[in-house]
Simulated assay, not measured.
Amino acid sequence: MTKAPRFQQIKTHIQNKIDSREWPVGTRIPTEAELCEQFSVSRMTVNKAVRDLVNQGLLERTPRLGTFVCQSKAESPLMDIRNIADEIKERGHHHHSEVVLQKSIIAPEDVAMRLGVMLGSAVFKTEIVHYEEDKAIQVEVRWVNPDFARHYLSQDFNEITPHQYLMQNCPLSTIEHTVEAILPPPNIARLLDISPTKPCLLLHRRTWSGQQLISSALLYHPGDRYKLSARVNVSS
């Protein structure tokens, strides 16, 4: 059997150290010179292995200090919509949620525009914090058109996510995503247990079932714990 390329062997060595917790988060890994000597390879080979792991989010380079094991980031697909509870379970972690708000409100102007309803219409609103193990990974602020999800407010969102309920009752046909980097509002920073000076990823999401606009959501993620990805096949 052909041996893996040398840079891949170095990557595997580093990954094994991280996975076994021999090198926990915050550990400074050996320098490139030390890895060159250990594996009897060129600096270019070591650099490729380390660079790949930096790009994967396992390592972080700090100028003049070295390369460190960093907290791996949760990841969601940008071009798709998935249940956050399923994403977390697939990573081998435990999901739980905390319902902050669950009630009917009179839609102010910005919410009416988001949902495409008349100003002053009654709409459903929920605020939910999603946790991966013991860390808040997402604050979900969602508005739902009650005409298409009449029993939304009677759901136990500690047991089922809004995504699950809506997918079961209003099958998804179209999604709209917009992403921006922001400094979190004070209430969001508190719910995510981060400083208001820490950056957040804010995903604006609207979903349709058939021709009907069903819900609009603001999904806040701590920037140092989360990333969004997209993969698009481009035909020639």
Results as ranks from 00 to 15, higher is better:
R28Q: 15
T31K: 04
E32Q: 12
A33Y: 10
V41N: 09
S42L: 02
N47P: 08
K48L: 07
A49E: 00
V50W: 00
R51C: 07
R51I: 07
D52Q: 11
D52F: 10
N55Q: 12
Q56W: 09
L59D: 03
L59P: 02
R61Y: 04
R61N: 05
P63K: 15
G66M: 07
T67E: 02
T67W: 00
V69T: 05
Q71S: 13
A74P: 00
E75P: 00
S76E: 10
S76F: 10
P77G: 07
P77Q: 13
L78D: 02
M79N: 11
M79V: 06
I81M: 06
N83L: 07
N83K: 06
N83P: 05
I84K: 08
I88A: 02
K89W: 03
K89F: 05
H95Q: 05
E98M: 11
Q102P: 02
K103G: 01
A107W: 10
P108E: 12
E109Q: 07
D110I: 09
R114C: 10
G116T: 13
M118F: 12
M118Q: 14
S121N: 10
V123W: 13
V123F: 10
T126N: 06
E127Y: 06
I128A: 05
D134A: 10
K135C: 02
A136M: 06
I137K: 13
Q138R: 07
V141H: 07
